[in-house]
Nucleic acid binder design. Structure first.
Lengths: 223, 223
DNA sequence: TAGATTGTTAATCGATTAACAATC
DNA sequence: TAGATTGTTAATCGATTAACAATC
């Protein structure tokens, strides 16, 4: 059997700490959506929002919104709704994005380069603070907003900055080896753009962004 | 209510033609995964595969694999399994990727540029044959593998090449206007990288690739 | 024929939605 | 108080999985 590719499989997560509950993955993803909508409401100086408003903005059902939010405690005021700023803060806290998160990117090719300059990450508090590649290219790399190091330096640099999140944009052949090294270096979350399944220990969470699969399944709907 | 962002909502599709069935979205996505695994099996000269093999390769349940495949007809041979090449061909046919598909890309910024050089699209038969931006930059654009046109030429160029699929990587402010023009020009499928909900008519299918949301929901899992 | 594996039905599981008492 | 909207329970819906007769 040649090489194994895998769908992200686990459908829910165990929250450790004071409570051991299963949080559906879909709820977590919607939480980030709520967070973004709330940010934009905040910019527009809206201070109150109901589950129906949020549902309309996101194309969801209002009961689902209330249920999602109630998963983590009682955030709303019956008869009133939710306070935009407070709700946004609490959601960001739950997601862990109430502080800047240092990130490493490995593989400074076309896609990696583009992601290094992607403002959307910055905006949500993700700081790509170092990048790695097999070869340095000072004339190209000096234009980038972050330092690029040779991949040999992966472990010490990741340790030095206490980074636990990585973006993987290396060629397929290198992906598993780099993943193993990232995991050994203490990385516990990977945003993977390489179209293959990564083998990782239980405690490491991988999100797959598979552009070719997105395109191919989209083409099914071409009329 | 300021601006509305939306989750892709429809959970299944109506197949028009000889049969009117509802195909769950998840099935279509897995179909593309099967297609890729089958391609790789084919490269490795494997000519037979069972639902259990496919399930193992993709981390799925073998009953699910059989059910998915049976959605579209009887592809397998009881007691034997599936013929790799035949199955791959039929899946590509179902997905509509048994032929090259012309694609337009709008917004030649960092991400757009990266995607223009992304080999994964080519490999699955997607041909980005023209790109558009608000401003031409001959010195930069001449290095790209496809011609870049000024966005004014959107409609005639799309018509000339009979393109019905587009990749959208424009700034948020431009996204809805460009979408409207794409739809009017005959585009029916959009791979959207802009982090906002696009309003489109029923017959247009949009897939959302939301990198910031992926990152943010991933950070929830940081231990 | 014996062994393997499909296609499919029925059972299970989980997620979404409707409805409503509680409450501001 | 009357009106609005939450949190939550129960009902619905859909997707996944187990099991197995049919079949190669």
């Amino acid at each position: 059997m040649p090489h194994s590719e895998k769908l992200p499989s686990a459908e829910s997560v165990e929250i450790s700490g004071d409570e051991t509950r299963r949080i559906p993955k879909a709820v977590v993803k919607r939480l980030s959506l709520y967070s973004r909508v709330l940010q934009s409401l905040e910019r527009d100086k809206v201070d109150k929002v109901s589950s129906t408003d949020l549902a309309d903005l996101l194309g969801l059902n209002s009961a689902q919104v209330r249920k999602d939010l109630a998963t983590f405690g009682q955030f709303g005021i019956p008869g009133y709704g939710y306070q935009v700023t407070e709700l946004r803060k609490r959601i960001k806290q739950i997601l862990g994005t109430d502080r800047d998160i240092p990130v490493a990117l490995i593989g400074v090719g076309h896609l990696g380069t583009a992601l290094l300059s992607y403002a959307g990450f910055q905006r949500q508090g993700f700081r790509v603070i170092c990048a790695f590649d097999v070869a340095l290219n000072p004339s190209e790399h000096s234009r980038l907003p972050v330092p690029v190091y040779i991949v040999d330096e992966l472990e010490p640099r990741i340790a030095a900055h206490a980074i636990s999140m990585a973006i993987l944009t290396v060629p397929q052949e290198a992906a598993q080896e780099i993943t193993d090294r990232l995991v050994a270096a203490g990385i516990t979350a990977i945003l993977n753009f390489v179209p293959m399944r990564l083998r990782t220990p239980e405690h490491v969470k991988v999100h797959y962004v598979d552009l070719a699969i997105e395109m191919e399944s989209l083409s099914f709907y071409l009329k």
